[in-house]
Design a protein around this nucleic acid. Structure first.
Lengths: 211, 211
DNA sequence: TTTCTAATGTACGAACTGGTACGTTAGTTA
DNA sequence: TAACTAACGTACCAGTTCGTACATTAGAAA
């Protein structure tokens, strides 16, 4: 096995990864039916034939893209360490992790949109995805419980609802930036406004939770 | 001109409207490239030829669909009468109008997603759309000013930010219901949870605005 | 070196899809 | 009722796109 100098002529792993990388962008940008198998292949070192060799077809390639994208995102979420923070700061921190994450992964956001456009019918075929997604909410639930025990938070809040509240804000900002820009002439991803929105999200969530 | 009995053999207006109705569903469900001109025509009384006769082509048909969808939504928004309500109740009412509206028009939500997937490039060609969209925010701004004058609301809030906050919650609930259902086994549009979310949105916004 | 197979490349086809050429008819107007 | 035009229908084409049959080769194993 030679070192990864980028000059190898045959490398199954690299060919697979390269196809996934390009396919992620292509599916995210053009949707499932809009993505072109020929176009994906053309953007790699390899040929269309390899898509069928490694994945079986367009649909299975899309499935592989989706699964990898979710796996990456949940791995990132697990890095948040909020055990040492007081409940209010911890909630703020968790919201910020989601905020940062959505902003840094526009392709993932687009894929979620693509998948919803198809009634998540592909996602249902990837059972593994469901397992991956509980951790984020579990972490949030612990913090909410702690906040309630300390008399800081309301009792009647559901962790999944709070997660939805956070996600919707972060998702919208990235997903709808183009129509928002066209209709209101405001760039939601303008770096100058970033801190403003990040703070706003924290205020929003903690304001809702406070007794 | 005969009465509209639905039995007319020739009726330009009806043919046009029928094409728009079907095309709205088709574009919303399958995206721009996913939608099939043949399929749209097949679902109407008329033939594909009429799409080219009345609209010119697939793209112009999509444009007409988009323009009509936005025109309808803004017309609905203008019905909200909040002049007689106190600022807190008025903000709550405006949020509820958006909430109800998004829920009642899933095809519109999908079209917004489709348009964002294409970087809103079509929307930019429909200048008329921009004019339509200021009214909703203007109304909100008046209420926020009134709330601030009465010492109820914070001073440093931007109406467009609040509009975004409201929109993101309402949009997410409808747009991402499928992936949310698959990943967390929760139906965001469950009628039994509707009042809960409607109230939650009001709490969220008024909680953020309060001094 | 020889053998073997995973990995890769080429060329092509069948089905689909947006668009159009051309012919027909309903209903109005003179 | 004769002429005219907006509205409509049919049949087809040209380009695209997913998928595959078949040939080839790099590199490991014997």
């Amino acid at each position: 096995m030679r070192a990864d100098t980028g000059e190898r002529r045959r490398d199954a792993e690299r060919t697979r990864t390269e196809l996934l990388d390009v396919a992620t962008e292509e599916f995210a940008d053009r949707g499932y039916s809009g993505a072109r198998v020929d176009e994906i292949a053309a953007r790699t070192r390899t040929t269309k034939r390899m898509i069928y060799y490694y994945f079986g077809g367009k649909e299975q390639l899309y499935l592989a893209v989706l699964e990898r994208a979710y796996a990456e995102i949940r791995a990132a979420e697990r890095t948040a360490d909020v055990g040492h923070l007081d409940p209010v700061a911890a909630v703020r921190r968790l919201a910020e992790v989601t905020f940062d994450h959505h902003e840094a992964h526009p392709a993932f956001i687009k894929l979620v949109g693509v998948e919803n456009a198809q009634q998540a019918k592909h996602m249902n075929h990837v059972a593994r995805l469901v397992d991956l997604n509980s951790s984020a909410v579990d972490l949030l639930r612990e913090v909410l419980d702690r906040g309630h025990d300390e008399g800081l938070f309301r009792a009647d809040v559901d962790a999944l609802d709070v997660h939805m509240m956070i996600s919707s804000f972060c998702f919208f900002r990235v997903a709808n930036r183009h129509t928002w820009g066209a209709l209101f002439d405001r760039d939601l991803l303008d770096p100058q406004r970033r801190e403003h929105y990040r703070t706003m999200l924290g205020d929003l969530v903690t304001g809702y939770l406070r007794k």
